[in-house]
Amino acid sequence: MAMTAADIEAYIREAFPDAKIQIEDLVGDGEHWSASVESTAFAGRSRVQQHQMVYAAFKGHVGGALHALALQTSAPKT
């Protein structure tokens, strides 16, 4: 079953309570999403690590119910 924007935001919010989140349905099929996430938790981490942290928040759903999630992550500019 495809995911909704609210589902995606909830997973990210649970793992990154301070995050600024923007979600976009890339194709309109509820399976190909893009999300930009800004959180202090990403400070000092490589881009791959940041994305792995976000993927971990989905507890295995990415690649399953959520076919694809293109990510843009960043730490707030200090």
Partner: peptide
Amino acid sequence: SNWPTVPQLYVKGEFIGGCDIVSE
């Protein structure tokens, strides 16, 4: 790679990322 999707790009044995990171 502890990465849930494909494609995955490796350069000289190092995992670089998927489509979004490589595009960026």
